[in-house]
Design a protein around this nucleic acid. Structure first.
Length: 958
RNA sequence: GCUCGGAUGGUGGAAUUGGUAGACACGUUGGACUUAAAAUCCAAUGGCCAUUAUGGCCGUGCGGGUUCAAGUCCCGCUCCGAGUACCA
C-alpha cells in the first residue's frame, strides 16, 4: 500500500518536473502581457544609445476562419529575427495590427445583417488569442486597425494631400496645386510640364483668367494626383454593383450568374503613372528578390519608342500611335484602332458603318479578361478610311480590331506585319499586303521580331542601318516633319480608387455643382454612416446611398440629414468608399507613432525609425500592395512628410505551407468506401475527408467519419486485411474547403508553442513552399525535451558552476557561429538542425555547466522563447531573457590541431587520415604516400600526380 | 509565349568560395526497459553485389563538356511550380 503511494508520488513529481510546456508557456505569456518587455522605445524615451531596427509582417485581414498553421510562418520568422536583434542591442520595433476593412465582412453583413464592425471585432479577438498562444514578441501598444476612425482619419488626410497636389515633371516631384495655379496665371499651361490627363486643352494666361471658377476647377482636376475620371468598369445591373475582373466568368457574374457589361463610370483614380519612372528606378537599391523586382518592372512596363501622327485622308484629324519600332515605319501596311477609339465613329465610311457598329457592340459585351484570354481568334473590321504615310504619302487602310487595347498607349497601332506577329496574323487573315523591310530575312512563315541582328531595307533613308541606328534616324526625321517624337511609354495605369462598397474608408468629399470639394482636414475623420442594409440602392447607387445622414453642412462643418441638402451650404457627400489598399499603403509608418493625432506620426518618430528594415509577407502582394505603398511613400516624401523614398528596405516572401489532404475512395454509384490499397482497377471517386479523422498512419476513424456528415451515416467500408481503412494523401493548398486545415491552437495544446515555432522553421527554407506533416513534429518536440533534460538531473533542476570542458566549449561556440550566420541569412531551418546537433553533443558530453547552458538558453530564445525564459529564470537570472546579450563567438575554442583528411584516388574517397594542420604540403604528401592503405590502393602503380589542398583534401591521380 | 524559381534516399530537407553527397529530422526495422502499453534509450537504414572483418560497383531530373576533383561551373534538353500575358 505504502509502496504504491510512493510510486504514485514519484510519478506526480516526474510530471511536474518534466518539461511541462503548457504551464511554462501560459506563465510566460502572462508575464509578457503584464511586463511588456517588447515595447519599442520612442527616440525621446531612450536612456541609452540603441540603434533602431524595424521588423514588420504584412498585417492580416482578420477573416472569420481564424489562423491555420500556414499563416504564422512568416510571423515566426520575423519574430525570431526581432528577438535576435533585441539580444544584439537594437531598439526593435516589431508591431502588429489588422487590415480590417474588406469585402468578406461586408459579404457576411449582407447575408446576416450584422454590422461589419461587430464581426470584425469578433474576428480580431480570435486572431489575437491565436497569435498570443504562439508567443510573439509584438509591441501591441502600437496596434493599428485600418477600420478604426483614428486611423482612417489619416488615410483620408493623405487622400486630401493627393488631391491638393500635382506632379511637376520639371522638378520631378509632387507640388502643391497652388503652384500650378500660379503657373497658369502667369503662362497658361503651354509651358507646364506636368503629369495630367491626355485630353487637356491648351490655354494661355489670359484664357485661364477668363475661365469661370467651375471651369478652372474642372481643369485642375485633370492635373491633381487623385482625380475623378470616366473609367470603364464591369457593371452588373442585376447585382447593382461593379465587379472585379476575377469575379466574372465567361461574361457573367460568378455570384448569381448575371450578365455583366462594360460601362463608363465616374470614379476616383490615383495618378500613380506620374511616379512610373521613380518606381522603376527605386527598385535598384532595394534588397528584394530579383523575381519580385522583375514582377514590378513588368508591371510598370517601360517601353521606349516614338509617338507618331498619321493624317487621316479627307479629315482634319490625326491618329496618334505609339511604337517601339519606328525603324520599321516603311513596313506599315495598315493601321488598327481599338474598337473603343474615339475616332472610329467619325471616320467610318457609310458602306462600312453597319459592320463596324456590329463589331463594336460585340466587343463591348466581352470583358477585358475574355478579350485577353481569347488570343487565338483573329477579328477585325475595315473602317473604309485611309491614313497617309508620313514619308511616302501612300494611303494606309484603317481597321479596327480588339487585339488593340484602348487602355494602352494611344489605343491605336501602326501595323507592321513583317515585324510583329499579331500584325502578321491579322494581315494574313484579311489578305493585307506584308511588305518586307528587313534585309535577307525570310518572312513567308512568320514575322521577324528580332531587333538585334537586323539590317533595314526597302526603307528609303533607313536602308542599310541596323535597328538601333534606324530608330534614332527615324525619330529625327519624324521630328523634323512634325509627324512624331521620341517617347517613353509605361504600361502602369492609373489606379481606380473608388469602390461601390460600404466597409471601407469614406471619401472626405462633397459635391458642389458636380465638382468635388474636400472637407477641411480639421474636421476629419469623416466617419462611416450607419445604414440599414449593406447592398446597393435600387437605383444602383453604392450602399452609402442608403444613409439618411450623409450630407455635408459647410457652415457648421458636420454631417447632416440628406433632407437638408440645398446645394448652397449643404451638399451631398461622396457615396463611394476607398479600396482595400488605401489603408495598407501607409500603415508601416503609423506604427512608428501609432496614437498620434496631429499627423500620421510625429516627425521625430518618422525621422528616427525611417523605414522598415525587414518586411515579411506573401508574394501575392508583389504588384498590388507593394507598388501602391511605394507610390504613397514617394508622394509623402515629396511633401516632406516622410524622410524616406522607400517603405521597405529588405523584403522576404515566405513560401506557402501546404496541407496534406486525405481522401476516401467511394465505389462508383454506391455508398461503399474502399481502402486505398485496394482501389486499383476499380472505378472510384475520391472524396476529401477531414484530416482530423485520420491518424499518423493514414488510418481513418470510421465511426468519426460516419458522424462527420449525415450522408455518410450508413456508409459501408471495405478495409484491408488488418481491418483498417487507409486513406490516400495528396499535397494541396491548405483550405477549409479541402478539409486539410491544421489549427495552430491544437498544436500548441498538444506540443507547445515552442515546438510549433521550431517545427515551422525546421520544415524547410522560409521562402519555399512546403507541405505540413504533423507526424514529423515529434522530432522537434523531443529535441526540446532533451534540451530541458540538459538542465535537470532526473527530477531536479541542476546546473554546475564548474567550468566547462574544452569539448563543450567547442560545441557551444560552433553553435553560436553557425546559428548567428543562419539568422543573418534567414536560414532558420538549418539553425534548428544546428541546435539539435548541439544538444545531442552536450548530452553525450554529460555537460551541465552553467558556462555553457546559460549562453545556450539565450541562443535558443528567439526560436523557443518560453522554455528559454523558464530555464533562464531557473539559472537565477532576475531580468527576462530578452534583455540578455547575445553570446559572442570566440574563434579560439574552435581551433583545431588536426584535420581528418579524405584521401581520394582519381576523385573517389577511399579512406581518411588524421594529420596535423601544421604540416606542409610535402609533409602531407609524404604521410599519405607512406600509409599502407595508399600502397594497397595503388597496387604498385606510381601516381601521376598528387594533389594536396592543406586543410581540405588529398587526391591521388594515377 | 515570356519572366523567375526548382528537380538530391520511402518523406521533409543539408552540403555558405568546386574538395568526404545524403547533415538534422520523420518513417521503417531490430533490440533494451515493462506483466503490458505508452514514454524513454540503443542500433541499423541511398541502391545493388559480396562478406569473417576488410570490400566493390552505381548514384544528386536527362545528354554532353570543363577540371586532379562537379549536386555545385559551362552548353543542350525534359519535367514541375509561381507570376504574367494580344503592351504595339
Amino acid at each position: 500500500m505504502l509502496l504504491l503511494q510512493l510510486l504514485k508520488y514519484k510519478r506526480f513529481i516526474r510530471i511536474i518536473m518534466q518539461y511541462n510546456f503548457n504551464a511554462i508557456e501560459a506563465k510566460w505569456q502572462k508575464k509578457w502581457a503584464k511586463q511588456k518587455p517588447f515595447q519599442a522605445k520612442q527616440p525621446a524615451e531612450l536612456t541609452e544609445q540603441k540603434p533602431p531596427f524595424y521588423v514588420l509582417d504584412m498585417f492580416p485581414y482578420p477573416s472569420g476562419a481564424g489562423l491555420h498553421v500556414g499563416h504564422p510562418l512568416g510571423y515566426i520568422a520575423s519574430d525570431i529575427y526581432a528577438r535576435y536583434k533585441r539580444h544584439k542591442g537594437f531598439n526593435v520595433l516589431h508591431p502588429q495590427g489588422y487590415d480590417s476593412f474588406g469585402l468578406p465582412a461586408e459579404q457576411y453583413a449582407i447575408q446576416t445583417g450584422q454590422h461589419p464592425a461587430k464581426t470584425t471585432e469578433v474576428n480580431i479577438k480570435r486572431y489575437r488569442e491565436q497569435l498570443d498562444k504562439i508567443g510573439f514578441s509584438f509591441d501591441w501598444s502600437r496596434e493599428v486597425r485600418t477600420s478604426n476612425p483614428d486611423y482612417y482619419r489619416w488615410t483620408q488626410w493623405i487622400f486630401i494631400q493627393l488631391f491638393e497636389s500635382w506632379y511637376n515633371q520639371e522638378t520631378d516631384k509632387a507640388e502643391p496645386i497652388s503652384n500650378l495655379i500660379q503657373l497658369f496665371e502667369k503662362h497658361g499651361n503651354i509651358q507646364v510640364n506636368a503629369a495630367s490627363d491626355e485630353d487637356v486643352e491648351t490655354f494661355s494666361a489670359e484664357v485661364w483668367s477668363a475661365f469661370s471658377d467651375h471651369k478652372k476647377e474642372a481643369i485642375l482636376l485633370q492635373y491633381r494626383l487623385t482625380y475623378l475620371a470616366e473609367t470603364e468598369v464591369n457593371w452588373c445591373p442585376a447585382l447593382g454593383t461593379v465587379l472585379a475582373n476575377d469575379e466574372i466568368v465567361n461574361g457573367i457574374s460568378e455570384r448569381g450568374g448575371h450578365p455583366v457589361v462594360r460601362k463608363k463610370m465616374k470614379q476616383w483614380s490615383m495618378r500613380i503613372s506620374a511616379y512610373a519612372e521613380r518606381l522603376l528606378q527605386g527598385l535598384e537599391n532595394l534588397d528584394w528578390t530579383e523575381s519580385l523586382k522583375e514582377s514590378q518592372r513588368n508591371w510598370i512596363g517601360k517601353s521606349v519608342g516614338a509617338q507618331l501622327r498619321f493624317k487621316i485622308e479627307n479629315f482634319e484629324s490625326f491618329i496618334e500611335v505609339f511604337t517601339t519600332r519606328p525603324d520599321t515605319i516603311f513596313g506599315v501596311s495598315f493601321m488598327t484602332l481599338a474598337p473603343e477609339h474615339e475616332l472610329v465613329a467619325k471616320i467610318t465610311t457609310p458602306e462600312q458603318k453597319e459592320q463596324v457598329e456590329a463589331y463594336i457592340k460585340a466587343a463591348s459585351l466581352k470583358s477585358e479578361r475574355d478579350r485577353m484570354a481569347d488570343v487565338k481568334s483573329i477579328t477585325g473590321v475595315f473602317t473604309g478610311a485611309y491614313a497617309e504615310h508620313p514619308f511616302t504619302k501612300e494611303p494606309i487602310p484603317i481597321w479596327i480590331g480588339d487585339y488593340v487595347l484602348a487602355g494602352y498607349g494611344t489605343g491605336a497601332v501602326m501595323a507592321v506585319p513583317c515585324g510583329d506577329q499579331r500584325d502578321y496574323d491579322f494581315a494574313k487573315y484579311f489578305n493585307i499586303p506584308i511588305p518586307n523591310v528587313f534585309k535577307d530575312v525570310d518572312i513567308s512563315e512568320k514575322a521577324h521580331a528580332d531587333k538585334d541582328h537586323t539590317i533595314i531595307a526597302n526603307s528609303d533613308f533607313l536602308n542599310g542601318l541596323n535597328a538601333k541606328e534606324a530608330i534614332a534616324k527615324a525619330i529625327e526625321k519624324l521630328e523634323k516633319i512634325s509627324a512624331g517624337t521620341g517617347k517613353t511609354n509605361y504600361r502602369l495605369r492609373d489606379a481606380v480608387f473608388s469602390r461601390q462598397r460600404y466597409w471601407g474608408e469614406p471619401f472626405p468629399v462633397y459635391y458642389v455643382d458636380g465638382l468635388p470639394k474636400m472637407i477641411n482636414e480639421k474636421h476629419l475623420p469623416l466617419q462611416l454612416p450607419e445604414i440599414n442594409e449593406y447592398l446597393p440602392t435600387e437605383d444602383g447607387a453604392p450602399p452609402l446611398g442608403r444613409a439618411d445622414f450623409w450630407a455635408w453642412d459647410t457652415k457648421n462643418n458636420k454631417v447632416v440629414d440628406n433632407k437638408l441638402i440645398d446645394h448652397k451650404t449643404i451638399f451631398p457627400l461622396e457615396l463611394n468608399t476607398m479600396p482595400g489598399w488605401a489603408g495598407s499603403s501607409w500603415y508601416m509608418f503609423r506604427y512608428m507613432d501609432a496614437h498620434n493625432n496631429s499627423g500620421i506620426a510625429l516627425s521625430e518618430a518618422l525621422q528616427y525609425w525611417k523605414n522598415v528594415d525587414l518586411y515579411i509577407g506573401g508574394s501575392e502582394h508583389a504588384t498590388g500592395h507593394l507598388l501602391y505603398s511605394r507610390f504613397w511613400t514617394k508622394f509623402l516624401n515629396d511633401l516632406d512628410v516622410l524622410p524616406v523614398e522607400e517603405p521597405f528596405k529588405k523584403l522576404i516572401n515566405q513560401g506557402m505551407i501546404l496541407g496534406e489532404s486525405a481522401f476516401v475512395h467511394r465505389l462508383k454509384d454506391s455508398n461503399t468506401f474502399i481502402t486505398a490499397d485496394l482501389i486499383e482497377g476499380k472505378e472510384t471517386q475520391p472524396i476529401h475527408t477531414d484530416v482530423s479523422l485520420v491518424n499518423f498512419s493514414n488510418e481513418l476513424d470510421i465511426e468519426g467519419f460516419k458522424n462527420w456528415r449525415p450522408e455518410f451515416q450508413d456508409a459501408k467500408f471495405i478495409t484491408d486485411e488488418n481491418g483498417k481503412y487507409i486513406v490516400s494523401r495528396e499535397v494541396e493548398k491548405m483550405s477549409k474547403s479541402k478539409y486539410n486545415v491544421v489549427n495552430p491552437d491544437d498544436i500548441c495544446e498538444d506540443f507547445g508553442a515552442d515546438t510549433l515555432r521550431m517545427y515551422e522553421m525546421f520544415l524547410g527554407p522560409l521562402e519555399q513552399a512546403k507541405p505540413w506533416n504533423t507526424a514529423g513534429i515529434t522530432g522537434v518536440h523531443n529535441f526540446l525535451k532533451k534540451l530541458w533534460k540538459l538542465y535537470h538531473n532526473g527530477d531536479k533542476f541542476e546546473v554546475s558552476g564548474q567550468s566547462a570542458s574544452k569539448e563543450s566549449l567547442k560545441t557551444l561556440h560552433k553553435t553560436i557561429k553557425k546559428v548567428t550566420e543562419d539568422i543573418e541569412n534567414f536560414s532558420f531551418n538549418t539553425s534548428v538542425s544546428t541546435f539539435m546537433i548541439c544538444v545531442n553533443e552536450l548530452t553525450q558530453q554529460k555537460c551541465n555547466s552553467k558556462e555553457i547552458l546559460g549562453p545556450l538558453a539565450v541562443l535558443i530564445s528567439p526560436y523557443a522563447p518560453h522554455i528559454a525564459e523558464e530555464l533562464w529564470e531557473k539559472l537565477g537570472n532576475e531580468n527576462g531573457i530578452s534583455e540578455a546579450n547575445y553570446p559572442v563567438y570566440e574563434e579560439k575554442y574552435l581551433k583545431e590541431d588536426n584535420k581528418t583528411y579524405p584521401i581520394s584516388f582519381n576523385g573517389k574517397m577511399r579512406f581518411t587520415l588524421d594529420l596535423s594542420l601544421d604540416l606542409s604540403k610535402d609533409e602531407i604528401e609524404n604521410a599519405v604516400m607512406q600509409d599502407e592503405r595508399t600502397q594497397k590502393q595503388l597496387e604498385g602503380r606510381t601516381p601521376k600526380k598528387v594533389i594536396v589542398v592543406p586543410g581540405k583534401i588529398v587526391n591521388i591521380v594515377g
